[in-house]
């Protein structure tokens, strides 16, 4: 049975209020939904007609068995969407809650299913949180690509190192950078020492075969390295 967005919303709210306070009155709905009493009464009548709610005049509102089932479905959708917003897109809870409330009534079953599977997939990934998701969080916070965006979570780049560390270059991403550094004697297999960092942590000062180079952390991020002896 198709329900309008408004009716779905009513079912969900009645379900939630019932969970909190056991009894649900028209007044509660007026408060929660921010609409006037006559329109609440009118909507309730249409829900009653569909056999989802029992409402005695001036009395309590109760969900029928079918109504409860339906409300639970809607609420579950809400939960999935909210979780996706919060856990994957890293939105704050209020925003996730607010937007889930809107989207839940429109979203198709297929998309919802896919979201559900996606969340399950992430949760079941070995380890705590997939590295690229942490990378995404870092990206959101700093606007910079994280070294965690690499193929494996453990790859080390030049920008991850501290002054004094010595490493060997494994790979240089980005063609232009590779060529440019190549002409200056920096290519895979070469040993590099981090000499220091500039004011505000950027650029990075390197020593390669006795000569010193300065690189920005954006570029250092593209240079994959390994520590000696690994």
């Amino acid at each position: 049975m198709e329900l309008t967005r408004r009716l779905e919303e009513y079912l969900e709210v009645i379900f939630l209020i019932a969970k909190e306070k056991r009894v649900v009155r028209v007044k509660d709905l007026v408060e929660r939904l921010g609409v006037r009493a006559p329109s609440v009464v009118e909507t309730l009548r249409s829900l009653e007609e569909k056999g989802l709610v029992v409402h005695e005049r001036y009395g309590h509102i109760e969900l029928t068995e079918r109504g409860r089932k339906r409300a639970k479905e809607v609420y579950k959708k809400h939960g999935i969407i909210k979780e996706f917003f919060e856990e994957v897109l890293k939105l704050p809870e209020e925003v996730a809650e607010r937007d889930a409330c809107v989207i839940e009534h429109y979203i198709s079953k297929e998309t919802l299913d896919r979201l559900l599977k996606f969340i399950k997939f992430i949760k079941e990934c070995p380890g705590e949180e997939p590295f690229w998701l942490s990378g995404f969080q870092y990206y959101l916070e700093t606007g910079k690509k994280s070294s965690l965006c690499r193929r494996t979570g453990e790859s080390l780049t030049l920008s991850d190192l501290n002054p004094g560390e010595r490493v060997r270059i494994v790979r240089i991403e980005k063609k232009e950078l590779r060529k440019r550094l190549g002409t200056m004697g920096v290519f895979p297999g070469v040993e590099v020492e981090i000499m220091g960092k500039g004011p505000f942590g950027d650029p990075i000062e390197l020593k390669v075969k006795g000569s010193k180079l300065a690189l920005r952390s954006d570029e250092a991020n593209c240079i994959l390295v390994e520590r000696e002896g690994t």
Binding site: L177, R180, P203, E205, S211, L213, A214, L215, D218
Partner: peptide, 9 residues
């Protein structure tokens, strides 16, 4: 563009 600069002795 990238910054790659030599720091001569």
């Amino acid at each position: 563009p990238p910054l790659i600069m030599e720091l001569p002795p």
